[in-house]
Every structure is written in structure tokens, then in C-alpha cells.
Design a protein around this nucleic acid. Structure first.
Lengths: 199, 199
DNA sequence: CGGACGAACTTGACAGTGACTAGATTCCTC
DNA sequence: GAGGAATCTAGTCACTGTCAAGTTCGTCCG
């Protein structure tokens, strides 16, 4: 129609749809957040986007490909969220916040049987997020002998809290309160949580 | 659960199969442990047991019914594992051990969208396990004001560690060591871990 | 300017799945 | 023995992912 500039659109060319890949991804996130990865159907996504049932296969080879792309995106978002955080406790809070804001990503990232775990993009993104996690711990413990143990403890605490939260296992105790604030109070029970060691 | 008091046989009557219900459950656990709940197919289970494809429906109404039964059984096993443990740290270790020994149960128990969460048997079993968890915490904190917070911290730590372990996220750090022993060392970072308060 | 090329998408078909129904078989109890 | 419930078979339906072709469009090259 009008614009025939050589600059290819920011997100690939649009043919019948506009940006089908993006539309499929966001629709998939909606479905997963609502009913879990098991409820995901490529045909349903195609229907929502108003394209034919086989169109998704062109962007993601198959169901596993779609989920792998979501996981990779999730690790990138997580790495981004963790970066530039002052110290360990704050990174824990951001870990929890990431789970709350991106429940679909979180769930898919930690369900390995749904993914092509050797996908290069996935491996790279995961490594980036892992580096962020590790740097926070080593900075807090500052070369302590059992820095690794402290890191795993912190990760377990944040991960467990987030998981229990997303599986609706903390609704009674929290009673509608702010999860992040609650988690922040929990971190006081672990060493290295703040600027000064608390143990 | 049509429980007729006259039941003479220990494990229900055997007709064509022997004990189809049990066979289906154990086969399902194998499949889930290997490839996750998404790989579960009633037809496949029937094939493994050597019966027709519709036979499973007579024991479990549908796929969700089977998974709900597994979750309920899981909570019973967990309650049983937690009972009679001396103190909080030991219960945490047993929580981790439960996850290692019953990975399929663990995964299904904490995937609510796969279950009929209002199933009476499931609710009852969950309540039993929850009571065990709570009693361990209150015994350790002994009426402390933030006993609930400590309980959630302990639960988060054990749950997160188990989850990360089962999703193969700790293979690097642990390097084949004993997970239970490793977790036991982590609990030293939390208060109320031993007979005497450590904070 | 026009034709070739390739990417995005459509159409059609296939095997496998879960849910459902009706009917046959076997076992237990009386 | 006969009745009745538990158990299993067989067939159907709508749905799914995947494959193999076609079709339409943008772009580039001669």
C-alpha cells in the first residue's frame, strides 16, 4: 500500500497477519497463565490469531519449539530483572516479582520435559540468567568458603516461595497481603541478606 | 470410592486383569516420572496393562480423576513421611526425601490445574499433610509471634530445594553428592533448625 | 519492467488422543 | 443354580499435532 521503504519492519514482514509470531507468543502466555502448559494447543492459538491451523508451525517448528522459545524469553527477562540490583536480598525480591509478573514463563522455564533443553538460544539465555544469580551470591558472601551453599539456600528460598505462591499454596497465610513484602521479611532469616551480615 | 464393608479380598476382586487399578496407578507413576504429566495417556496405560482402551475409565472417571487420585495418594505418603519426625530440620530432610523417592507424586501434587482441587479425598489428604507441616513449625518456634513466617520460610526452602533438584537445576553444584546431606547443611542457615534455637 | 525466488500462509489428510455410549462377559452373593 | 454388580470390549465423536502439498505476497536481479 503506502509505505514501500526498504527498511524491513522491525519485527519481520507482515503478510496476512501483521506479526503472527508475536501474536502467537502473547496468546500462548495467556493460555498457560490461565490453564497451564497442558492446555496449550497450536490450533487454538491459530484460531485466536485468525490464521489457518498450520500457520504456527512456520514460526515454531512444533509445540515444543514454541515452549522452548517462551522459556528462552523467560530467562532473558529474568536476567534483565536481576541485573543492576544492589544486593542479594533485593535480587531475591526481584526473583519473586518475576514469577508473579510472568507466571507462564516461570512455569515453562522449570518444566524441562516440555523443552528442547539443548536449544542454543535457550542455553545461552539460561547461562545469562545463571550468571546474574551467581554474581549476586559471590558479592554477598565475598569469597566465603561455602558461598555455593549460601547461594543454593537463597535460590531455594526464593524459588520455593515463588512456586508455592503460584500454585496457590500460600493464600491462607498471606491472606491477600503483598507477597513481595512478605518475602522480604523472610530473607531476614538468612545470612547475607542485607548490606551488613545479619548472622 | 464405593467402600463396601464386606470386601473379603485384600485388593478388590480380580477379574480379567488382577488388580487393574493398582497396575494403572503404578504405570502412570512411571510415565510421569519419566516424561511428565503431559505424556500421560489413558490409552497408553491401558495398552501397558493389556486391557482395552476404555477400561481405565471405570476406575478413574477421566484423566483428571487419575491425577487427582495420584495427588491424594501423594499427600498421604507425605503426611506419613513427616509424622514421627523429631524436629523441624528432620522434617525438612524428609520433605526432600519424599520428593526424591516420589517425584511423580510431588510434581502432580503441585500442579493444581491438572487436579480436581475440590475432590473430598484430595482435600482430606492435603489437610492431613498440612497439619503435619504446621505442627513441626509450631513445636520448633513454640508460640513465637512470627511462627507462621518461620514456617513459610522453612517450607519455601525445602520446597524450592526439592523442586530445583527434580528439575535438574542442581546437578552442577551438587555434582553427584547426596542431596539430603547437602540440604541438611543448608538448614543450619535457618532458625529453629535444631533442638535449640540457633538465632 | 518482468520474471524468478523465497518466506508467510492455506488447504487437506493422517494417526493418535480423551470422553462417551452401548453391550458383552465374568464374578460374587444369595 | 439365578440375579446383580463389577469389569471389560467395541465403536463413535471432536479434538490434537504433524506432514505434504499448494497459494499468495514481497523482493531482488537481470
Amino acid at each position: 500500500m503506502a509505505a514501500s521503504a526498504k527498511s524491513p519492519a522491525p519485527s519481520r514482514g507482515a503478510y496476512h497477519h501483521g506479526d503472527l509470531r508475536l501474536a502467537l507468543l502473547t496468546a500462548a502466555l495467556d493460555v498457560i497463565a490461565a490453564d497451564g502448559p497442558g492446555a496449550l494447543s497450536l490450533r487454538d492459538l491459530a484460531r485466536r490469531a485468525g490464521v489457518s491451523h498450520a500457520a504456527p508451525a512456520h514460526h515454531f517448528k512444533d509445540r515444543t519449539g514454541l515452549l522452548t522459545a517462551i522459556a528462552a524469553q523467560g530467562y532473558e527477562l529474568l536476567a534483565e530483572a536481576l541485573a543492576h540490583a544492589p544486593e542479594l536480598r533485593e535480587r531475591g525480591v526481584r526473583y519473586v516479582r518475576f514469577g508473579i509478573e510472568h507466571p507462564a514463563h516461570f512455569q515453562v522455564m522449570f518444566t524441562p520435559e516440555l523443552l528442547r533443553t539443548d536449544d542454543p538460544a535457550l542455553v545461552a539465555a539460561r547461562e545469562r540468567a545463571g550468571a546474574e544469580l551467581r554474581s549476586a551470591v559471590t558479592a554477598a558472601t565475598d569469597g566465603d568458603a561455602d558461598a555455593r551453599a549460601a547461594g543454593i539456600a537463597a535460590w531455594s528460598l526464593a524459588h520455593g516461595f515463588t512456586t508455592l505462591l503460584l500454585t496457590r499454596n500460600l493464600e491462607g497465610p498471606l491472606a491477600g497481603g503483598d507477597p513481595e513484602a512478605y518475602f522480604r521479611s523472610l530473607t531476614g532469616l538468612l545470612p547475607g541478606g542485607g548490606p551488613g551480615r545479619t548472622v
